[in-house]
Amino acid sequence: MNNTFVNERPNGGTFLNIGSGAVPAVVRNNLFVEPGTLTNQGNASLGTNFQGEPMFVDQAAFDYRLQDGSPCVDKGEVPGMSGGIDLPPRFHYVHPAGSTGRTTVGALDIGAYEVGGEGGSDGSGGSGGAGGRGGAREAR
């Protein structure tokens, strides 16, 4: 839920390589950048995701926040609950190795960051991404 995956390998690869026999993965509100196959799991539950040019603030400097006008803004789906856990993201990553609260502005944005959604350090007052839900990842 609400992750940003960046693959800078020229030949692509698989973003989510899931072992055989695993329960179907739920892949929702994720942003996949550069070449690659989303997952090797044929029965994965693929909700709303985006693969393409997301309009990052500065990809070369690892700033994966979205610019205003990004095709990912307000395009996420409500994550709901699973196993009694509320799934909307509550925090997002702050470089290097920090986090801040993430507040949803309008509809939920796809990816690890919410445009205009930098909130308080506890994530109260809205939803946002971290703790296994919402984060930026990069493959090199």
Score class of each variant (00 low, 15 high):
Val105Met: 14
Asp122His: 01
Ser20Trp: 06
Ala61His: 09
Gln51Trp: 06
Asn49Ala: 10
Gly98Ser: 13
Tyr93Asn: 12
Pro10Ile: 00
Asp63Lys: 00
Met55Thr: 02
Pro79Asn: 06
Asn2Leu: 13
Val94His: 04
Asn17Gly: 05
Ala107Pro: 05
Gly128Arg: 08
Gly21Ser: 09
Val27Ser: 10
Pro71Cys: 08
Lys75Thr: 07
Ser99Pro: 00
Gly117Phe: 07
Gly83Cys: 09
Phe91Trp: 11
Gln67Leu: 15
Val115Leu: 14
Gly76Tyr: 09
Arg9Phe: 06
Phe32Tyr: 11
Met55Arg: 13
Ser82Thr: 04
Tyr93Gln: 12
Gly98Trp: 08
Gly52Val: 03
Thr103Tyr: 09
Arg28Gly: 10
Gly36Glu: 13
Gly111Tyr: 15
Gly126Asn: 02
Val94Cys: 03
Phe15Leu: 04
Asn40Thr: 01
Asp122Ala: 05
Ala61Met: 07
Glu53Asp: 15
Gly106Met: 07
Ser121Cys: 02
Gly13Glu: 05
Gly80Lys: 09
Thr39Met: 15
Tyr113Ser: 03
Gly126Gln: 02
Gly12Trp: 05
Asn17Pro: 01
Thr103Val: 12
Thr48Trp: 01
Ser45Asn: 11
Gly132Asp: 08
Asn17Ala: 12
Gly116Glu: 12
Glu118Gly: 14
Arg9Pro: 00
Met1Ala: 15
Val26His: 13
Ser127Tyr: 08
Gly119Asp: 05
Arg137Ile: 00
Val23Gly: 10
Gln51Leu: 06
Arg9Met: 06
Asp63Pro: 11
His95Arg: 11
Gly116Ser: 10
Ile18Val: 04
Asn30Cys: 15
Leu38Cys: 13
Gly111Lys: 06
Arg102Asn: 08
Val73Asn: 08
Asn49Pro: 03
Ser99Ile: 01
Arg9Ile: 02
Thr100Ala: 08
Gly134Tyr: 11
Ala61Pro: 03
Asn7Ala: 04
Thr4Phe: 15
Ser127Lys: 04
Phe5Met: 05
Ala22Glu: 11
Ile18Phe: 06
Gly13Ser: 03
Pro89Phe: 06
Pro35Ile: 00
Ala97Asn: 14
Val105Ser: 10
Pro54Asp: 03
Glu118Pro: 06
Glu77Asp: 13
Gly123Cys: 05
Ala22Met: 12
Asp74Asn: 15
Ser124Trp: 04
Asn49Ile: 05
Gly21Val: 01
Gly36Arg: 15
Gly134Arg: 09
Ala107Gly: 14
Ala22Lys: 09
Pro79Thr: 00
Val57Trp: 13
Arg28Val: 14
Leu66Thr: 01
Glu53Tyr: 08
Asp63Thr: 00
Thr37Asp: 14
Pro96Trp: 06
Val57Asp: 13
Asp86Met: 12
Gly21Leu: 09
Phe32Arg: 07
Thr37Leu: 15
Ala61Glu: 06
Asn43Met: 08
Leu108Lys: 06
Asp63Trp: 09
Ala61Gly: 12
Val73Met: 09
Leu87Ile: 01
Gly125Cys: 03
Gly132Gln: 04
Gly135Phe: 10
Ser45Met: 04
Glu53Pro: 00
Glu138Gly: 03
Phe50Asp: 09
Asp109Lys: 10
Gly129Cys: 13
Phe5His: 08
Ala107Tyr: 14
Val78Met: 07
Val73Gly: 02
Glu77His: 03
Gln59Glu: 14
Gly106Pro: 11
Gly101Tyr: 06
Thr104Ile: 01
Gln59Pro: 10
Val105His: 10
Glu53Ser: 15
Phe91Ala: 03
Ser70Lys: 10
